[in-house]
Design a protein around this nucleic acid. Structure first.
Length: 447
DNA sequence: GAGTAGGAACTCC
DNA sequence: GGAGTTCCTACTC
């Protein structure tokens, strides 16, 4: 379950806009946070994802945000991937040396909210404050939880998780401990009564009902499928425009969103940010995740309230929309997204493009992967646009592209011979073709 | 030698 | 069954 950030964002937006159930928001946030205790694995290893994948290969921010005034003290905090090997590396953690030398295999992990120092110490106070923590990098995807702030007036944000009495007969706390590599090595505390998929049923139903009604309404208004993976470029654009209107954002560059829904789904937040403002990106990403979550949940047991959604379908169950050409349905106005963000400092020569961490990762197709490489902007030494408006690209380093693809698909024996065979399979499907004047290692996305 | 093209059998989901 | 993957032969640059 990965969409708690989205839900929280959405709830917060509802709060700000004083919409239907705004009064329930603080409580729901609290409940959403506490109910996730059961989801957090004490096993820090990931067999499903590449260890050297970009998403897991560098410290990723753990956002500490304040949904209401009482948490404002923690607004600017950034924690770093706690499920990651290596030390935090960003500028805000340069004073990482402030960690106690006496750190043992198992220590509670703190971050000084004021000076951005990381420190280790014991949680000893009985006084707690709450904030929202998002760990964006856990293999099981993001989670939210309540984090107790150790000690009254303390700047330390300790990762001791306190569940709300609301969900338990007795208040219970959950303490996360970390080894020297910031891996979670233990998560103690009481069990939380949750639905098998991690959501208390009543909250799940509330959320699904709320979001499901909106999904259904928007689908009806825009005449689009509930599944973003099926959207045509026009539908994607309409949906983004609708979201911008809904959030009262004023981005004028929405022409960039004439892309298939599958491409939108495959775009990371950083890629989106190259197209629209950060605020709009946040809203779009959150809403997209919610949509995916909603349609995914409609296939699960406690989602009877969503049967009215036009085409409720889970991308994890139905990957077939991806079989369409990336350009299928594009009008003459279709342009290939212009992303030019600079690679973000990873020193791994074979880092993979920054993908959103969700279920689509398992079903990415080669043409999507190639497009991600092209969009990323950090792979121009191995693949680059020759004529982006025509979708013509050149593979500059065939071995590396093949290696990246093999890494992505867990095929260590992948080479360019095999990759190119896969590309040639696209000829019949009109997804990729050779250019008019065939040149070595030059291909073109079909229009 | 490296890349291109496509057939065929195969795996994986 | 779709989407590759693997292996192959023949061919071009």
């Amino acid at each position: 379950m990965e969409n708690w950030e989205s839900i929280e964002r959405y709830l917060l937006s509802k709060e700000y806009e004083a919409l239907t159930f705004d009064q329930q928001v603080p409580q729901m946030l609290s409940e959403l946070s506490s109910m996730l205790h059961g989801e957090i694995s004490s096993d820090s290893s990931s067999t499903e994802f590449y260890q050297d994948d970009l998403a897991f290969n560098k410290p990723m921010p753990v956002q500490v945000r304040s949904p209401c005034e009482q948490f404002s003290k923690l607004d600017s905090c950034e924690l770093y991937n706690l499920d990651q090997q290596g030390s935090p590396q960003s500028e805000s953690s340069q004073s990482d040396s402030s960690r106690s030398d006496s750190t043992s295999d198992s220590q509670d992990f703190y971050r000084d909210a004021q000076s951005y120092n990381y420190t280790y110490s014991d949680l000893s106070s009985d006084t707690y404050k709450s904030c929202i923590v998002r760990n964006t990098c856990l293999p099981s995807n993001g989670y939210y939880t309540n984090v107790s702030n150790s000690g009254t007036g303390s700047e330390h944000c300790g990762l001791e998780i306190k569940s709300e009495p609301h969900w338990e007969d007795e208040p219970t706390s959950k303490r996360f401990t970390f080894n020297n590599n910031n891996h979670i090595v233990h998560s103690g505390g009481g069990a939380t009564s949750v639905h098998p998929c991690g959501v208390p049923e009543d909250i799940g139903r509330q959320l699904l009902k709320e979001f499901g009604m909106e999904v259904g309404e928007v689908c009806r208004q825009l005449q689009i499928d509930a599944d973003p993976m099926l959207w045509s470029p026009r539908q994607t654009h309409d949906w983004v425009r609708w979201q911008c209107r809904h959030f009262h954002t004023a981005d004028s560059s929405l022409e960039e969103f004439y892309i298939p829904g599958s491409t939108l789904c495959a775009m990371s937040e950083s890629e989106l940010r190259t197209l629209v403002s950060s605020e709009t990106t946040s809203h779009i990403k959150a809403k997209l995740d919610i949509w995916l979550w909603v349609i995914q949940q409609t296939t699960q047991s406690f989602a009877p309230a969503l049967t009215q959604i036009p085409v409720p379908r889970s991308p994890t169950i139905s990957p077939t929309p991806l079989s369409a050409s990336p350009c299928e349905g594009m009008g003459e106005e279709e342009s290939f997204p212009s992303h030019s963000h600079v690679a973000t400092g990873s020193t791994d020569a074979d880092r993979l493009p920054d993908e959103p961490v969700h279920h689509h990762r398992q079903t990415i197709q080669l043409w999507q992967f190639l497009k991600l490489l092209l969009l990323d902007g950090g792979y121009t030494d191995c693949i680059r646009w020759m004529d982006k408006s025509k979708g013509i690209f050149k593979i500059e380093n065939s071995n590396r592209v093949a290696r990246l693809w093999g890494k992505r698909k867990n095929r260590p024996a992948m080479n360019y011979d095999k990759l190119s065979r896969s590309i040639r399979q696209y000829y019949k499907k009109n997804i990729i073709k050779k250019t008019e004047h065939s040149k070595r290692l030059v291909y073109q996305f079909c229009k």
